[in-house]
Simulated scan of single mutants.
Amino acid sequence: MSEISSDYDSAWKEALTTYFEAFLQFCFPQVHRDIDWSLGYENLDIELQELIRDSETGRRLADKLVKVYLNSSEVALVLIHVEVQGQTQSNFAERMYLYNHRLFDRYQQQVFSLAVLGDDDRNWRPDNYGYSRWGFESFLRFPTLKLLDYKSEDLETTTNPFAIIISAHLQTQITRGKAQERFQSKISLVRRLFESGYDGEKIRQLFRFIEWMMALPIELEQDFKQEVKRIQEEKKMPYLTSFEREGIAIGNLQATRSNVIDVLETRFETIGEDLAAKINQIEDLEWLRQLLKQAVLVGSVSDFEQLLSQQ
Rank of each mutant, 00 (worst) to 15 (best):
L206E: 03
G40I: 00
S72T: 14
I248E: 09
P238S: 04
D36A: 06
E181Y: 05
E246V: 05
A115L: 02
K202L: 10
V68I: 07
L155G: 00
E47D: 12
V75I: 15
Q222I: 13
Q281T: 08
L140P: 05
S132Q: 08
G251F: 02
D9A: 14
K235L: 08
W287M: 15
V111H: 00
T172F: 10
I218Y: 08
G58D: 05
I279V: 07
F142R: 01
Q222Y: 08
L206W: 01
L79P: 02
K67P: 02
Y198I: 00
N100D: 08
D63Y: 15
F142D: 03
V66F: 00
E156Q: 15
I210N: 02
R53C: 15
E21A: 14
M237N: 06
L65Y: 02
D149Q: 00
Y8P: 03
T159M: 09
A249M: 11
I46C: 07
R59V: 05
H81V: 11
F26P: 01
I165G: 08
G272E: 04
A11F: 04
L240Q: 07
L155Q: 01
A215M: 11
M96G: 02
Q311D: 09
E244H: 10
G86A: 13
Q89H: 12
E74Q: 11
V298W: 00
R106V: 08
T18K: 12
D262R: 14
Q49Y: 05
R125N: 03
C27N: 12
E42C: 13
A277P: 06
D223T: 11
I165W: 01
M214L: 13
F194H: 07
V68T: 05
E47K: 08
V116T: 04
S132V: 02
E56Q: 10
D45Q: 15
R267V: 11
F209K: 10
S242V: 11
K236M: 09
